[in-house]
């Protein structure tokens, strides 16, 4: 379960592509707030930021994407509201809950238009992004691990925003992303392992500085990215 079906790899690439018109380009995944707060100043800071974020918010999103995918794949959409409530409980910051729902709504709209399916309208008005990703993966014939990997990649790719926020060599930024590929695969596997677990037992690692910075960012006068 969760292995990439060789016939569906193109679908996974489509879902994880930063050019998918789902609004991801407007977000830096918390990087801009961290740069503004002076906590990310160089490449080492950037790599530690991305690692910590993938292990916390990344893993939570991946676990919920995998869980939503597993449920959609067995036509169990009635289980999604419980996942929504559990996901809400894992995000103390109202700003980050809003960002997740904004991105979810945009992904829902994009996928509903690109690849119409009744599941997308059944998701409600502003579903959380990982749940939409899980359902989208399922609709495209992908499995829980693919859904997890797609959202981990999507979140991590926001690091490319570093080129707009800091004085950096874009090749160095992508060298960091290349080093992160192994850990992202590991996280996707972990997320897939809990895809069928009781939602109450899904991972819930916190990222206190990301929560704090997100609330400051919302009130910032000048910003390039929405989050």
């Amino acid at each position: 379960m969760g292995q990439v079906d060789l016939g569906r790899q193109a679908a996974l690439l489509l879902l994880a592509d930063g050019r998918l018109p789902a609004g991801g380009y407007a977000h830096s995944g918390g990087l801009e707030p961290a740069v503004i707060a002076g906590r990310v100043r160089n490449m080492a800071d950037l790599e530690a930021f991305l690692t910590g974020r993938a292990q916390t918010a990344g893993l939570v999103a991946a676990a919920f994407a995998a869980a939503a995918c597993a449920r959609a794949s067995r036509d169990d959409l009635a289980a999604l509201p419980e996942l929504e409530a559990e996901f809400d409980a894992r995000i103390p910051s109202p700003e980050l809950r809003k960002v997740s729902r904004d991105l979810g709504r945009q992904l829902q709209r994009a996928m509903g238009s690109i690849h119409p399916h009744r599941y997308f309208s059944a998701l409600g008005r502003a579903p959380h992004q990982p749940l939409v990703m899980g359902v989208a993966a399922s609709v495209l014939g992908l499995g829980p691990q693919d859904a997890a990997l797609a959202i981990l990649h999507d979140n991590n790719a926001g690091a490319a925003a570093a080129a707009k926020l800091m004085r950096v060599d874009p090749f160095e930024v992508h060298a960091i992303l290349a080093r992160a590929t192994g850990p992202l695969d590991d996280l996707a596997r972990r997320a897939a392992e809990t895809a069928d677990a009781d939602p109450a037992d899904l991972p819930a690692p916190s990222a206190p500085l990301a929560d704090i910075a997100a609330e400051h960012h919302r009130r910032a006068d000048a910003r390039l990215f929405a989050s």
Partner: peptide, 23 residues
């Protein structure tokens, strides 16, 4: 569920001392 948060730090917790978690 109303609030559910885990915290992890120490030698085994990758990135806990990065700017997203505890710096």
């Amino acid at each position: 569920p109303l609030y559910d948060q885990q915290l992890e730090f120490g030698p085994k917790a990758a990135g806990f001392d990065g700017a997203a978690v505890l710096g």
